[in-house]
Amino acid sequence: MEIDAKLGLDVFKLDKEPHIVVKNEICSTVCVNRACLYVCPADLYELDDQHRIVVNWEGCLECGTCLICCDARALEWTYPRGEFGVQYRMS
């Protein structure tokens, strides 16, 4: 099952502003492993055509794995505001 299809089963209430911001000036200078590209269980991180890291924060499960695994501290990471973000109905 595609990861996008799995995320499609979840409820996401979208804020206008992202709750995760990638500081690419740090990614491109300090980071050696780019762990965010493979540790995210929702597969939200990818490289754009200029090899910058972009995060599709809209599908965030708010687990914090990327934050904990980012040695370079290149993520500005907060929880979404109240009324927003993933809302689990079972889990």
């Binding site: 089963l9 540790v39 995210c40 269980p41 929702a42 687990c63 993933v86 889990s91």
Partner: peptide, 29 residues
């Protein structure tokens, strides 16, 4: 990628019959 481990897990011959016929209702982490 971390997430794909779960799909591989579900496809293992020991697991497949256990989840057969099921409908995925939610994904969480």
């Amino acid at each position: 990628k971390c997430f794909s481990l779960l799909d591989e897990f579900k496809e293992m011959p020991q697991i497949r019959p256990l989840v057969a016929g099921g409908t995925v209702a939610e994904y969480s982490a």
